[in-house]
Every structure is written in structure tokens, then in C-alpha cells.
Design a binder for these strands. Structure first.
Length: 184
DNA sequence: AAGAGAAGCAACCGCTCACTC
DNA sequence: CGAGTGAGCGGTTGCTTCTCT
């Protein structure tokens, strides 16, 4: 059986208070990110590590760009979604200052509707073709991908969605290779 | 002005993956 | 090699704010 992510200690849930935010920021500024499980106790927070990580990544990080998405960002999200499917973290990785949660929310609330209004299927980015929700790719080992219940296109011919899909989007020339972390 | 419904967004949940022992 | 554990991701929920009647 799987353990719950946090022991059944009394932990706060719901919206974060200013004080909690401050504690989390102070702690991370002093000690850096990492070891989210032990962070709450060390920082004096009654939250689970998962919740702390989410709050930091999606809201408190100093390099976050808040506010409306620009047209260029919208365009990029649409194109990247056509390539990658719902791989929000990968998409967000191409948008400096944006988080996967933010991109996902923006997609679901704005862009999806926009595409529908244009007569496109937001799942496969094709005109007038409605399909079931896509789960085009699942991560395999080491940032490679395998196609699953593909709606379609011969994705299993290659394990790289970018390789396989850029040909259908010739105007898009993005370097989507994912570098391995530097090893000291 | 107030109530209802819609939209937006922050946060939670559960699953998977990667790493360690 | 398999079990255990921590971290990350994507889907979903639910609260808040906005808009319409």
C-alpha cells in the first residue's frame, strides 16, 4: 500500500496566508530548494511538502512573470500543444517565467475555447475533427516519449514527438531538445 | 441592488517515475 | 532485482471574482 504523501499530522489546507508565504520564502532564500518533505517542519510550516513545493513553484518564485499572456506566448502555447499534447511542464519550460499550472489553466480557460471558436479541435489542432481527449505521449525513461492511445498519426514510428510532428507544422522551428543536467 | 450563473485561478489528489538501498 | 521513498506531473476540484439579468 502506498503511504499518503504527508503523515496524518494536522496540516493546513486551502489558501496560503501572508505569513506562510513569508516563512516559505525566507526558508528557501536561506537554504535553497530541495527536500520538500522535511522543509515544512524545518521552515515552521503546518503544510505538507507537496503543498510547499507547489506554492513556491507556481506563485512565490522570484522569476515568475505574472499577468496576462501575450499574443506571442499564446501562439507558442498553441503550437507547442500541437506538438507535445498536455505536457504542460514541457510547454511551460519554453515560456520563461510561466509555470505549468499557469499554462494549463490558461489553456483550459482561454485557448481551448479560442480554438473551438475557430472551428479547430483543441485535442488534435485540426479543423473540424473532434476526438476524445488526447493523451498523446507519456514520458518514458530519460525524457523520451512513447505514444499511447494515439488518436492517430503514426506516432510510434519515432519516440520523439517533436521529430514526428514538426513535419506537420513546417512554420515552427523550435529547439525542443532537452539537455541532460550538467554533471559535475 | 441582489441573486444566479460563468469564468478564472490556486490548490489538492492520485499516479508515475527515478533514485536508493 | 525488487521494495520503499521522494519528487514531479497532469487532472480535477472548489473558492473567489466577474458579468449578466
Amino acid at each position: 500500500m502506498r503511504k499518503p504523501c504527508c503523515e496524518k499530522k494536522e496540516t493546513n489546507k486551502g489558501a496560503w496566508s501572508k505569513q506562510e508565504d513569508q516563512k516559505l520564502m525566507d526558508y528557501i532564500q536561506k537554504h535553497g530548494e530541495g527536500c520538500w518533505r522535511s522543509l515544512p517542519e524545518a521552515a515552521g510550516l503546518l503544510r505538507c511538502g507537496k503543498s510547499c513545493r507547489l506554492r513556491w513553484v507556481n506563485y512565490l518564485r522570484p522569476d515568475l512573470k505574472r499577468g496576462n499572456f501575450g499574443e506571442d506566448e499564446e501562439d507558442l502555447i498553441v503550437k507547442l500543444h500541437a506538438l507535445l499534447g498536455n505536457r504542460w511542464s514541457l510547454i511551460a519550460g519554453r515560456l520563461p517565467g510561466r509555470t505549468d499550472n499557469e499554462v494549463k489553466n490558461y489553456w483550459n480557460t482561454h485557448l481551448k475555447r479560442k480554438l473551438v471558436q475557430l472551428g479547430m479541435d483543441p485535442n488534435n489542432h485540426r479543423l473540424g475533427q473532434l476526438t476524445r481527449p488526447s493523451k498523446s505521449f507519456v514520458p518514458n525513461n530519460n525524457h523520451t516519449y512513447k505514444a499511447v492511445n494515439s488518436n492517430s498519426q503514426a506516432l510510434n514510428s519515432t519516440s520523439d514527438p517533436v521529430e514526428s510532428n514538426t513535419s506537420s507544422l513546417p512554420d515552427l522551428n523550435l529547439d525542443l531538445t532537452i539537455g541532460l543536467p550538467l554533471v559535475n
